[in-house]
Structures are given as C-alpha cells and as structure tokens.
C-alpha cells in the first residue's frame, strides 16, 4: 500500500509532472476552459485511457507475462505520441524505482516499459495497482489544468475526489480492456506538431 501511495504522490520523482495527458492541447484549443469542461474531460479520460492503463497495471501485478502485455498495450495504443508518453513515464518511474525498491522482477520489464506495467510490478496487488494507475490518469491532467488555466485548486480537487476512480479500478481487475480514445489520440498527435511554447511533453 505504501508503494502505491508513493507512486501516486505528485512529489514522486518519476517525471510525471511534465505530462498533461492531452489537457494542454485541449486547453489550447479552448475545449477545456473551466471546471465543468474539465470535469467532462477527466470523466472521459478515466472511462477510456484510465480503464485501459488500469487493466494493464492489474494484469502486470497478477504476474502475467510482461513481454506479452507490452505488445498487447502497443497494439491498443495506435498513436505514436501516446506510446512515447506512456514509455517516457514508465522509464522515469523505473529509474526512481530501481533505487527505492530493487527487485528481480524489475529486470523482467522490457526496455522503456509502458508505465502501467511498471506500476503493476512495483505495487504487486492488482486492485491497488489499478487504482494507482486510474488515479494517475486523472490527477496529472487535473493539476495541469490548475497550472494552465488558473482554475481554483479546491474546485479541481473536489472534481477529482468525486470521480469514479475506484469503480474503474474494480472493472480493470476483471478484464484486459481494449478501449480506444480517438479524440485523445488526435490531441496527443496535434500537441507534438504544435508550434510555440509547450509546458508539457504530452
């Protein structure tokens, strides 16, 4: 449980703070401007990308073959920008984890692993891993919204607290999802092409 808490903590030095999960692009286009539109964005993100990531974290925690899971998650992530964002966050998390929780199973992870697999291996319990992953799928974009849009941190925190993160984590433990997120994929690809100042890597 402590591992899950540390991984979900925004002060964990895994490099997650440079990713907004598509929020920066959505904000730049005026699709997310206030608390209601942020809540809609986060609910959509949790139901799609959040469930997908949580399902793979749970499967990795259950001890399923990590090479197979890595290839299956690649097949479920058609956007190269999304694959790179997931692997960059996995790489960052793994770097911190090698010092904090050295174990033989970390060596079984593929090179530049997808982040949900790293979370699954480190947390070890399927539900806790899924919960951590589902929470991270919305907490990063939520804090990015505070920084990018100047939204009220108390209001944003209340939105996150009311999201059905536990329900998604429970569902993620019973299936290996394949949910696509076409709009998030298109936002991620467009974000990389955007000219000018970008605060976030994705």
């Amino acid at each position: 449980m402590l591992t899950a808490l540390i991984l979900a903590d925004s002060r964990f030095p895994g490099g997650g703070h440079v990713h907004s999960g598509g929020l920066e692009e959505a904000a730049a286009r005026g699709l997310v401007t206030d608390e209601p539109s942020l809540e809609s964005f986060l609910r959509g993100r949790l139901a799609g990308a959040g469930l997908l990531a949580a399902g793979f974290a749970a499967a990795a925690a259950r001890g399923e073959d990590l090479g197979v899971l890595d290839a299956e998650l690649d097949a479920r992530t058609p956007s190269p920008a999304q694959r790179e964002a997931s692997r960059a966050q996995g790489r960052g998390m793994l770097r911190a984890a090698r010092r904090a929780w050295p174990s033989d199973r970390l060596a079984l992870l593929p090179r530049d692993p997808h982040q949900p697999l790293v979370i699954g291996v480190l947390v070890g319990d399927a539900f806790e891993a899924a919960l951590t992953c589902a929470y991270l799928a919305v907490s990063g974009p939520a804090s990015a919204a505070v920084r990018l849009l100047g939204l009220d941190p108390f209001g944003v925190n209340a939105i996150v607290a009311a999201l059905p993160v536990q329900d998604v984590a429970t569902r993620a433990c019973s299936e290996l999802p394949a949910l696509g997120s076409p709009a998030l994929d298109l936002l991620a690809e467009a974000h990389l092409r955007r000219e000018g100042v970008r605060l976030f890597g994705s």
Binding site: G44, A47, G48, A178, L179, P182
Partner: peptide, 25 residues
C-alpha cells in the same frame, strides 16, 4: 502477434461529448 486491438464504445452521452471521449463529434 497483436498489431491493432481497439474497442470503440459509443452511446454514453457523457463520454461522447467529452474532449477526451469523442469530443462531441
């Protein structure tokens, strides 16, 4: 070996209208 595996779910008005769902398209 898996090349593409994508499920698209439509019909949940909340998700369909979300910028992270189908962006209202």
């Amino acid at each position: 070996k898996p090349v593409l595996h994508q499920q698209l779910v439509v019909g949940d008005a909340f998700v369909d209208s979300s910028a992270a769902g189908l962006a209202g398209k």
